[in-house]
């Protein structure tokens, strides 16, 4: 299983990579949407964990683009914004409320479980 993590906050990005790694999940972590799109060209990821507020292209736009590149890619939204609402475009891709995790996630195991659920 290949998971792509996109987060501009290093401590989050790193801790999540480490946590996923501890659970034997292969993780590629990038700090921007642009980098993520590059990575997507190269690797076929199963799941992407996307932060919304990103420098440059934001998370919403990234998901749309990523879906264009890899239609089988599934997404988890991991955001600090409590007022986040799914746009119609994302709903069309198949995102639902349960795919949204608000930071801070009290127990990362829940996030891992969600990723595993999506990948299988």
């Amino acid at each position: 299983m290949q998971v792509l993590i996109i987060d501009d906050e290093a401590s989050i990005r790193n801790s999540m990579s480490e946590f996923f790694d501890d659970f034997g999940i292969a993780v590629t972590a990038v700090s921007s949407a642009e980098a993520a799109l590059d990575a997507l060209q190269a690797i076929s990821f199963d799941v992407a964990v996307v932060d919304i507020r990103l420098p440059g292209i934001d998370g919403d736009a990234l998901i749309v683009k990523a879906h264009d590149i890899r239609p089988t890619l599934r997404f988890i939204i991991h955001t600090g914004s409590v007022e986040y609402r799914l746009s119609d475009a994302l709903r069309a891709i198949g995102l639902r409320k349960e795919h949204i995790f608000i930071k801070p996630v009290a127990d990362l195991s829940a996030l891992v479980a969600a990723v595993q659920g999506l990948a299988s």
Binding site: E9, S11, I12, R53, G80, K103, P104, A106, D107
Partner: peptide, 28 residues
Amino acid sequence: AHEINNPLAGILQNIQVVENRLMGELPS
């Protein structure tokens, strides 16, 4: 909220990784 939640997430997630790695029964 957003500004605070991000660092909090950093703290909490890292602590969880630290706890896991110090006291968890992980193969790594």
